[in-house]
């Protein structure tokens, strides 16, 4: 691990051996510029974070500045899924279904602590991080994140979109879950990710 410096967002790297010409890279730039500035969000709002998401979309913070004012309540016309709020197990198949209904290219933002890790809800009912259900591009911390935090997450996603290259086939690869268990990642990894950590281990002692 360790922090690696991020490349400049607007520069498309040119690989002379890859057989890509000047035209392709410039075209990538144009397409990515267009995409990044007109992302249509699909708000999957469940709880408190959805209220802050609404505040972000309202007058004071004005999501329209990022080309995102067009809320796409149908997943079939959406580019980016913003999962705002906790996701209990009962909602897990719904989230999976909505993700599968979205067409490529698609991205996902996990907004808030509960969506990202289960947050303070380390109990029988809540999924410990939506990345066990769908692939996530940007995690926004906070409980709930302030609108500025969400906007920063959106800008990070825009940077990621701007670095994509049409010639790279792996970007558009739709992940297929394991046919029997319907899981993307192996069960042992899920169990490991969901282990209680830190203070939570001691706080949930019964008795006293």
């Amino acid at each position: 691990m360790g922090l690696t410096p991020r490349p400049e967002p607007n520069v498309v790297s040119y690989d002379p051996k890859g057989g890509e010409g000047w035209v392709t890279t410039r075209l990538d730039f144009l397409v990515n510029w267009g995409r990044a500035n007109s992302l249509w969000p699909m708000p999957f709002g469940t709880a408190c974070c959805a209220i802050e998401f609404m505040a972000t979309a309202a007058a004071q913070f004005d999501l329209a500045r990022f080309g995102m004012e067009r809320m796409s309540f149908s997943p079939r016309q959406a580019d980016v899924l913003i999962c705002a709020g906790r996701v209990p197990f009962k909602l897990a198949p719904v989230l999976r279904r909505i993700w599968q209904q979205m067409p490529q290219p698609k991205w996902a933002i996990s907004m808030g602590a509960c969506a990202s890790t289960g947050g303070m809800f380390d109990n029988y009912a809540v999924v410990q991080g939506i990345d066990t259900i769908i692939p996530v591009d940007v995690y926004v911390p906070g409980c709930p994140p302030r609108p500025e935090g969400l906007i920063y997450g959106i800008m990070m996603l825009q940077e990621k979109v701007k670095r994509e290259r049409a010639a790279d086939p792996s970007i558009r690869h739709e992940m297929e879950p394991d046919p029997t268990s319907q899981l993307y990642i192996p069960p042992s990894a899920i169990n490991e990710l969901s282990e209680p950590f830190g203070n939570a281990v001691h706080q949930t002692r019964s008795g006293l």
């Binding site: 198949p93 999924v127 410990q128 066990t132």
Partner: peptide, 14 residues
């Protein structure tokens, strides 16, 4: 286990 819970939840028909 968490994986089993998730597997059962995802197997539900929404």
């Amino acid at each position: 286990s968490r994986a089993e819970q998730l597997r059962q939840a995802l197997a539900a028909n929404p």
